[in-house]
Design a protein around this nucleic acid. Structure first.
Length: 421
DNA sequence: CTTCCACAGGAAGGTCTGGCGG
DNA sequence: CCGCCAGACCTTCCTGTGGAAG
């Protein structure tokens, strides 16, 4: 830089490498990381182990359903036990297959069977293509493959409620009676307690032989989980004493979601690192909370339908205007609707009714983009008071990404009358 | 106390899309 | 391919209402 020459990339990276990193192993803090130790899930691990144990004697364990909110350790427990089971099976000479499938990605009957079948390809060289075969044929092929293997297979279906239709589940439960040498059992994981209510009764009875519920963690338990991970993820002494309790408390308020707690701490540490701070502090946690929330809101706004975007645009314009005038930053349904109406004409959209617009506003409220509450102004009627949420300051730019809204960037509001109110 | 504003928000019905069984 | 149905999305019409002004 002193010589005026362009900075070489090498120097840039050198600078990065010279910076002391707070992390020892960043991966440990990511949601995808599978820990060896799961604090406060000992009971669940034990119970599930008891259910699965028959697999080691070559018998099929009961099918089981596992419920629990996000971040309560369902997947982690199942994966951990799957690993153990495979290991133990090898030691004992009883082969146990554990196949983990996420039904959010593998969501149709065909793809489910295809994926299971392809787990066996290394031994028998047949391969099932990702499309082209009739589903029945995949099914019978699968049966042949499994019978040749003569082993117990445990199929884990994560997010099983995302699976389309129940034929897929039905055929999996039916398969046992058509196998001679092999056995399968199914573990279904879901965060929807009412999921089984809508299932075919036959599937329901055979699949729900056992069930387990994972309760959310409380703040104390979350602290233990965080401590356990921090040991491996961050350097010693880089985390202030009050940081972990804070992360735990904030996440416990939500749902007791361990994933959130870890995210919070990881983002906080990343922010600290970026500002070359020697330690992660409370301050960073607060910043992290804002960042996570901002990222969430940004994503929500990007994927909003255009009419909702336009309504939001009107809200943002009114907010900007009232701030310029130094008045309080709230507005009413009527004001928003009037401006929205104007904007509609400007961009040649067909304008929705006030009734519908009111619904869109309350949707924005539920998504946490704006805050809306019903108030009465006495003689001046009853209305909803709207405010943009604290994290939604710079949403205008996101809306401008959309072609339709670009033209509005230099659009000025006509009416000045309400400034005097 | 009554009045009455400016909406809230429920009910019912219309239109369109997309999946599904025959 | 067609008819059917469910559900998303809107409209029309409606009744209900908190509380400052009168």
């Amino acid at each position: 830089m002193k010589t005026g020459k362009p900075v070489l990339t090498k120097d840039l990276f050198d600078q990065y490498l010279e910076n002391e990193s707070l992390f020892v192993n960043r991966e440990v803090m990511r949601p995808s990381y599978m820990p060896e130790l799961l604090p406060h899930r000992e009971k669940e691990i034990n119970d599930l182990a008891n259910v699965l144990a028959p697999a080691l004697r070559g018998e099929a364990p009961s099918n089981i359903f596992i419920y629990g909110k996000t971040g309560t350790g369902k997947t982690a427990v199942v994966k951990l036990l799957g690993k153990e089971l495979r290991k133990k099976g090898e030691q004992k000479g009883k082969k146990v297959n554990v196949i983990y499938l996420n039904c959010e990605i593998i969501d149709t009957h065909y793809r489910l069977l295809q994926n299971i079948a392809n787990q066996f390809i290394n031994e028998w060289n047949d391969h099932v293509p990702f499309t082209g075969w009739p589903t029945d044929e995949v099914y019978s092929k699968l049966k042949i493959m499994m019978d040749k293997e003569k082993s117990v297979t445990i199929i884990v279906l994560d997010e099983v409620d995302k699976l389309q239709g129940d034929e897929a589940l039905y055929s999996l439960t039916r398969i046992n009676s058509e196998l001679t040498n092999a056995r399968i059992s199914v573990i279904g994981i879901s965060n929807d307690l009412k999921f089984t209510e809508f299932l075919d009764p036959r599937v329901k009875s055979s699949l729900g032989e056992e069930s387990m519920i994972f309760d959310p963690y409380d703040a104390k338990q979350l602290q233990d989980i965080l401590h356990e991970r921090v040991k491996f993820a961050l350097k010693k002494g880089t985390v202030d004493d009050d940081v972990i309790p804070l992360c735990a408390a904030l996440s416990a308020q939500e749902h007791g979601d361990a994933r959130r707690a870890l995210d919070l701490l990881r983002v906080a540490a990343e922010l600290a690192e970026r500002t070359h701070a020697p330690k992660v502090t409370r301050h960073h946690v607060r910043q992290a909370q804002n960042k996570i929330e901002l990222d969430r809101v940004t994503e929500v706004v990007r994927t909003l339908p255009n009419q909702s975007k336009l309504v939001l645009y009107a809200v943002l314009m009114l907010d900007k205007q009232s701030k310029k005038a130094g008045t309080t930053q709230t507005m009413t349904t009527g004001e928003v609707y009037d401006l929205y109406h104007e904007l509609c004409k400007k961009v040649r959209y067909n304008c929705l009714t006030q009734r519908r617009t009111a619904d869109l506003i309350s949707e924005l409220d539920m998504l946490g983009v704006v805050t809306a509450r019903v108030i009465s102004k006495g003689r001046h009627g009853r209305t909803t008071e709207i405010q943009i949420s604290s994290t939604s300051k710079d949403l205008m730019e996101i809306l401008h990404e959309d072609e339709v809204f670009k033209d509005l960037a230099n659009y000025k509001m006509k009416e000045q009358a309400r400034l005097t109110i």
